[in-house]
Design a protein around this nucleic acid. Structure first.
Length: 640
RNA sequence: CGCGGGGUGGAGCAGUCGGUAGCUCGUCGGGCUCAUAACCCGGAGGUCAAAGGUUCAAGUCCUUUCCCCGCAACCA
């Protein structure tokens, strides 16, 4: 068994991580634990991505320095990784000094060999929004945010010659069909990005400061690509100019990068090209896992289906959360997560199948034999099929892990417990116990069960490590190596079991949901009172708002906009006024034509989906929006 | 035609290279009493979104249509 280097994407420290990040690290941890169990020398890397404009802004809002800000969030993220009982070997932060130094050297080297060059980044700048836009971002040549003029501008920046390596990358991907996984992603990358031709990549910014400085040019910072992606090698002590550390020599190239499907492009195009330019080997595989979504319904607090990782852990415990994430997530499609399905899986798989199996078996050994089984020699033909089924789990689990189908692996493990429960019904131990001359048979049956439970516990290690340890303690064994579960019968005859507390207490789903809803409602109530009411304004300030009654002359949906209706209003001024309003979900054009509404007449115009909107009409409501109609007030009347 | 993912028994999902439609939960009936109202067995329930095509054979391949869900763009 050789080395195995596995990584997660590094988490962006803009805010507290959501369940999606948690899924990724649990997934990666399960794989890392499984490979260790197999005997691989595993190095498991995770960490945080801490630079960029967004963080600069968040820090400013919070009134702290960027460094103070990321220190806090990085600690939170690391806390959640620990809470989830993940066994990362290193936690890298892109603000670590060795990383910053190595990144600067990487940049310098690429610049010196001509793969990075200085050029001009052309774009458009909107002064009021203080934002840059490319040609394609502009809407009708105007600022997509405010609809104002965006003036042509340009700034100096550094570019990375992706185009130079395009051919080489294409060849690599074709020669290594497993490089991008699952395969559907491979074609997506080749067809959409690589074959049409790669644009050189802008790798520096001068519009913000919070980043690693470009070593040869003080006004610029290194943009996210080179900074973040290179964490996979800097964490191992890579340096383009220096002797690389032992870790690097030992573990690089990575066996797999585990990432979300949204960043596949960066990991299968930019990253390999960077490595090619540096003359370093490429990772074996990039696995883009699917997303974890919240529920099937729309997210709604009152329904109790908004879900956070640490809340879940608090209620269900770490292993239940780990098991749920690993077993519920499909391999290719996005998975959804709800309290209902969580409880269902918890009760049926963990409490009923696994927990109860251990409980009833240990109880029988204690009850019938005082905890010590005298023999395991009285076999019957029915045992053979049982043992064969138990042993067949391992190859199935191996295959599933090889294919990154972790939910399938979990299912194969669960089958060990299911088959064992069935074996109890097949052998009637409670009847054997009533006949004195069946003691040997009874002992053998229980021995087989204890052994299958041991195999189950070992197989559960990657998924629910703490529970696995509890089970091993309950059957009083420390034989938990990979070899020992390839054959049946590692537990010596005459060994004893301990006792065990229930591993997972059943949860009453209805009661749980009711309590949750009550809790959420209470919290919402609280939040409402805080939010309610803005700061008082004077009558003069109110007078700055011009409200006028207007008649809807015409109305039509705006193409390409789901929510917008375009209204043509007669506001008494003699000129038609066009207003876009986000009420398409609730009103059809015919509902509005001919009716009088109140329009905010002196609102600054804005362009929405290509329509210039001058003003807005008054409407209110949360889930269902109602327009305020004033059919009995004359058109043009000012509202006070 | 903005990008993407989907429509398979009541719910959630598998279904490889086309070859008898499976799994979990629920439900109904039965069994059992070692165990956490758990465990085991059996039944019911599907024209695989629709139409057309290719084929000896289509959930699977091709074409068209309908419907959901994310993302993007806007709820001025």
């Amino acid at each position: 068994m050789g080395k195995y280097y596995i990584t997660t994407a590094i988490a962006y420290t803009s805010r507290k991580p959501h369940i999606g990040n948690s899924y990724e690290i649990v997934l990666t941890d399960a794989i890392a634990r499984f490979r260790r169990l197999q005997g691989h020398d595993v190095f498991f890397l995770t960490g945080t991505d801490e630079h960029g404009q967004k963080i600069e802004e968040y820090a400013q809002k919070a009134g702290v320095t960027p460094k103070e800000y990321v220190d806090k969030v990085a600690a939170e993220i690391r806390g959640i990784c620990d809470l989830l009982n993940t066994t990362y070997d290193k936690f890298i932060r892109t603000t670590d000094d060795y990383h910053e130094k190595a990144v600067q050297n990487i940049f310098k080297k690429l610049y010196e060999q001509g793969d990075i060059y200085k050029s001009v980044y052309k774009g458009h700048y909107c002064v009021p929004c203080e934002s840059f836009f490319t040609d394609s971002q502009l809407v009708d040549g105007k600022c997509p945010d405010c609809g104002g003029e965006a003036r042509d501008t340009s700034e100096e920046a550094y570019f990375f010659k992706l185009s130079k390596y395009q051919k080489q990358l294409e060849e690599h991907i074709e020669k290594h069909p497993d490089f991008i996984y699952p395969e559907s992603r491979k074609n997506e990358m080749l067809n959409n990005f690589i074959r049409p031709g790669l644009q050189d990549l802008c790798v520096s910014r001068s519009s913000f400061k919070w980043g690693i400085p470009v070593p040869i040019d003080e006004g610029h910072v290194i943009y996210v690509w080179i900074d973040a992606l290179s964490n996979y090698i800097t964490a191992l002590g890579y340096d383009p100019y220096d002797e690389c550390g032992d870790l690097y020599k030992k573990y690089w190239p990575a066996d797999v990068h585990i990432i979300g499907k949204d960043i596949i492009r960066f990991h299968t195009i930019y990253w390999p090209i960077m490595l090619m330019a540096l003359g370093e080997p490429l990772p074996e595989k990039v696995y883009g896992h699917p997303w974890l979504l919240f529920g099937t319904d729309k997210m709604s607090k009152s329904k109790g289906n908004v879900i956070y990782a640490d809340d879940l852990i608090e209620v269900f415990g770490v292993d239940a959360v780990r098991y749920y994430l690993l077993s519920e997530m499909p391999h290719a499609n996005d998975g959804s997560i709800t309290y209902e399905s969580m409880i269902e899986r918890y009760n049926s798989d963990l409490a009923n199948t696994i927990g109860n199996l251990v409980s009833r078996t240990v109880a029988m050994v204690n009850k019938y034999f005082d905890g010590t089984l005298p023999c395991n020699t009285c076999s019957e033909p029915i045992d053979d099929e049982f043992k064969a089924t138990i042993l067949s789990a391992l190859p199935a689990v191996e295959k599933a892990f090889d294919e990154f189908k972790i939910a399938n692996a979990a299912e194969a493990v669960l089958n060990v417990a299911k088959r064992s429960n069935k074996y109890i019904d097949e052998t009637y131990p409670w009847l054997l116990a009533k006949e004195e001359d069946k003691k040997d048979r009874l002992s053998t049956v229980l021995y087989n069960l204890v052994e299958s439970i041991r195999i189950l516990a070992v197989l559960l290690k990657p998924f629910i490590p703490a529970t696995s340890d509890k089970i091993l303690a309950a059957i009083n064994t420390d034989i938990d190596d990979y070899e020992s579960i390839k054959t049946f019968g590692a537990i010596p005859a005459g060994s004893s079991v301990a006792t065990c507390e229930p591993l997972f207490a059943r949860i009453d789903a209805q009661k749980f949901i009711d309590e949750l809803i009550a809790k959420n409602e209470a919290q919402q109530e609280k939040e409402k009172k805080v939010i309610e009411g803005l700061a008082p304004i004077s009558i003069d300030e109110f007078a700055k708002v011009e409200l006028r009654v207007a008649k809807v002359k015409a109305c039509e949906p705006i193409k390409k906009a789901k929510k917008l209706l375009k209204l043509t209003l007669d506001d008494g001024s003699g000129e038609d006024r066009t207003v876009a309003s986000g009420i398409a979900q609730w009103y059809k054009p015919d509902d509005l034509i001919g009716r009088n509404v109140i329009v905010v007449a002196n609102l600054q115009p804005a362009t929405l989906c290509g329509v210039e909107s001058k003003g807005m009409i008054l409407a209110g409501g949360e889930d269902e929006v109602k327009v305020i109609f004033v059919d009995d007030i004359e058109v043009g009347t000012k509202i006070r």
